[in-house]
Design a protein around this nucleic acid. Structure first.
Length: 416
RNA sequence: GUGAGUGUAGCCCAGUGGUCUAAGGCGCCAGGUUGUGGCCCUGGAUAUCGAGGGUUCAAAUCCCUCCACUCACCCCA
């Protein structure tokens, strides 16, 4: 028997209410803040991601779904959402619009990882980007918007962590300090960290291995190494931010393009895969992709993890609407009549489910009940002869014989 | 990629070598009124016991390999 590929999952009808709920809230928030939707292709040139995400990152070195198409092009299923948006910004000359350009997306993301709760090979992200402005007020807006998104969903007990990792001017100095510090404690480090020391020193900071904790605790802090501009940017951001946050000096993100502001939001009682959203500023990325120097800041969240937390916190989700009328019929003649009737009702915008096959009336009504229909319309030989139908209220047990021509009016009065 | 745990019908699961041609509950189907649901009662269908191989007179039960899921590491949404 075939199964969905590892790390992928079917979203069955019973789960859809969560997805529609989140999509609706996301779209509402974006409208509130002036972000417009963009949909980029599912795959892009492999280069786009290696350039933007960083050649030494895990995402690029071992997690991308990369393939060659029949024309010999090197393509990759998008492993993140920011680079494609930036590519589109450049490709379509969006710098000619008033800056910042504010865009949002909802898209599948693909990473070849070992699946776990809250981690899949295909997952879905809602994210947004504000491109073309370096004002720290914009960072604050992006963060506040993320917070408002989560709280509007009904999520509670969230924490916001914040840090600044500097820019290309001041970061080298900080990286050197980190390297010095870790080199002098080299013997205490776990094997992974010895590799990180060479390849990606920033990542040393968020190693959770106990043996590295002491070294990390005493490590130099990025905020002590910021250049005056970054320093001012960070302090203005903190001033604008009207949310409870904690500075996490060890917060660095896994993608290389981040500069200055980085942030993460997680539920207080988080497990291993707890972060539900995060983002930051990436002032050099557009230039790196071939554009003019263009500052930008963005955010992304994982929908599967949001749903996980909605369930954990028992947040009530509005049910999806479905047809409220069920048409049951007895006999072939009635069946023909039922088909016509269903068509007539739908024509006037009344949702209808019609019994099919040759089930007993009992079975048909049982089905109406399980489907949650408010009303059952019953047609048999008697009704056909007299031009009537039986309209049964499924919430109670009352039913009336009414003229078939009166049905629409009756159903409308029944507050459908 | 590493380590640990788990894998019996659509779902939850009993069963640890023969009495298992696999139990129970939910769900599904049908009957209990000849044209009427929800509760109740009765009956029925659905399991190559994750896959393959091995040990044994005998395997859902023991061993090996693989696959998947869960948890932790790693990484991140």
């Amino acid at each position: 028997m075939y199964r969905a590929p590892r790390g992928t999952t079917d979203i069955l009808p019973g789960e859809q209410a969560y997805w529609r709920y989140i999509e609706q809230k996301a779209a509402g928030i974006c409208q509130l803040y002036g972000y417009e939707r963009i949909d980029a292709p599912t795959f892009e040139d492999t280069d786009l991601f290696t350039r933007s995400v960083g050649e030494e990152t895990d995402i690029v070195t071992k997690e991308m779904y990369t393939f060659e198409d029949k024309g010999g092009n090197q393509l990759t299923l998008r492993p993140e959402g920011t680079a494609p948006v930036c590519r589109a910004y450049l490709e379509h000359g969006l710098h000619n619009q008033p800056q910042p350009v504010k865009l949002y997306y909802m898209a599948s993301i693909f990473r070849y990882e070992r699946p776990q709760a809250g981690r899949y090979r295909e997952h879905h992200q809602f994210g947004y980007e504000a491109i073309g402005d370096a004002d720290p007020a914009l960072d604050a807006e992006v963060i506040e918007m993320a917070w408002r998104f989560f709280t509007s969903l009904g999520l509670r007990q969230l924490t916001l962590e914040l840090n600044s990792i500097g820019c290309k001017k001041c970061r080298p100095r900080y990286l050197a300090a980190i390297k010095d510090h870790y080199t002098s404690h080299r013997r205490e480090l776990c094997p992974d960290c010895k590799i990180r020391l060479q390849r990606n020193p920033l990542r040393l900071l968020d190693c959770k291995n106990p043996s590295c904790q002491g070294v990390a605790d005493s490590a130099p802090r990025s905020t002590d190494y910021l250049c005056p501009e970054c320093e001012e940017h960070f302090s203005r951001l903190k001033g604008y931010l009207k949310l409870p946050f904690t500075i996490n000096h060890r917060l660095v993100r896994g993608l290389d393009y981040y500069t200055r502001t980085v942030f993460e939001i997680q539920p207080e009682e988080g497990g291993a895969q707890s972060t539900i959203g995060g983002g930051g500023r990436y002032d050099d990325l557009i230039e790196e992709l071939g554009g003019k120097p263009t500052p930008a800041v963005g955010f992304a969240s994982g929908l599967e993890r949001i749903i996980l937390n909605l369930k954990k916190q028992n947040v009530p989700i509005p049910p999806l609407p479905k047809p409220r009328v069920f048409i049951a019929h007895i006999g072939d003649e009635a069946r023909d009549e039922a088909i016509k009737l269903a068509s007539r009702l739908r024509q006037t915008g009344i949702g209808v489910i019609e019994a099919t096959g040759k089930k007993s009336l009992k079975a048909q009504l049982r089905q109406a009940n399980t489907l949650g229909a408010r009303h059952a319309v019953i047609i048999g030989e008697d009704e056909i002869r007299t031009g009537t139908v039986i309209l049964r209220d499924m919430t109670g047990a009352e039913q009336n014989v009414i003229a078939s021509s009166q049905l629409e009016a009756e159903l409308r009065e029944g507050s459908l």
